[in-house]
Computed example of a mutant assay.
Amino acid sequence: MKRIFGIFSMVVALFFSSCIEQDYALWEGSLVEFQQAVVLNPVAGQTFPRVTVPNTQGSVNLQVNFVSAHRANDEVITYKVVPEGTTAVAGTDYTITGTATIPANSSFATVTVNIVNTGAIGGSVDLLLELEGNATIQPSERYKQVQVRITRPNPPAEG
């Protein structure tokens, strides 16, 4: 009897675990996001992460992920400076272009922030960037911002 019950149990298990056609929903949107926003924790009390660089670094490259099927043509996306999270001054502390290009058949673009060496004046300034996308590619609401903190060494002590 135990043997019959065991065989019956295996037949029932096989019957219920057989292949079932399932219709999985496929997402067909297109988003862009900062890689640093995906992998780094947000600043305390904020929704964005911070990348800290010295003013002597020259430039910092921020990777932009393209979350979509590849496109046959280049895609130019825009980004902006968010004044509410920025104390850095354009041209004095940094320069940017405001656009990044996702090459055809690629998943990535690079936003380059050129850091101006303001010398040993002490303190730090912040630059908050936000992806805007373009007409067909939207920014990810959760991962569209990243802040760059530019540190400046203290001046040498006199004496």
Rank of each mutant, 00 (worst) to 15 (best):
T97C: 09
F108Y: 13
R50Q: 13
A104D: 11
S59I: 03
Y79A: 03
F108P: 04
P103L: 10
V43K: 00
A72E: 15
Y143K: 01
Y79Q: 05
T52R: 02
I115E: 01
V146K: 01
G91Y: 02
R50N: 11
F16R: 12
G98T: 05
T87H: 00
S68K: 10
A120W: 00
D126V: 04
E21V: 03
A25F: 03
P139K: 06
D93W: 02
A25S: 10
A135M: 14
S30Y: 14
T101P: 14
S18Y: 11
D23A: 10
Q35I: 11
E132R: 13
S30K: 15
Q145F: 00
I137D: 12
R149D: 07
I20A: 12
P83E: 03
A37N: 05
V81P: 04
N117D: 15
A109D: 08
K144Y: 07
G29V: 09
N41S: 11
K80Y: 07
L40Y: 08
I137W: 15
T136V: 11
E21P: 00
T95V: 08
N117T: 06
F34N: 04
T78L: 11
G29W: 15
V148I: 09
I115L: 02
A44Q: 05
A44K: 04
I96V: 05
K144R: 13
L131D: 09
V146M: 03
Y143Q: 03
G98E: 09
N61T: 07
N134H: 13
L62Y: 14
Q57F: 03
A90Y: 06
V125Q: 06
V39T: 13
V125K: 06
S17L: 10
A135P: 11
T97W: 11
V111L: 04
N61S: 11
Q36P: 01
L129E: 07
G45F: 01
L40S: 06
V113N: 08
V113D: 12
Q145C: 01
E132Y: 15
A69P: 10
A88N: 02
T92K: 08
N117P: 06
T92L: 06
G45N: 02
G91A: 04
G98R: 10
K144S: 08
T110G: 02
V60E: 10
E75N: 14
R71K: 08
I121S: 05
Q46S: 02
I20L: 12
P103W: 07
L40W: 02
V38I: 10
F66T: 01
G45A: 01
P42A: 04
S140A: 13
Y79E: 05
V76S: 14
C19M: 04
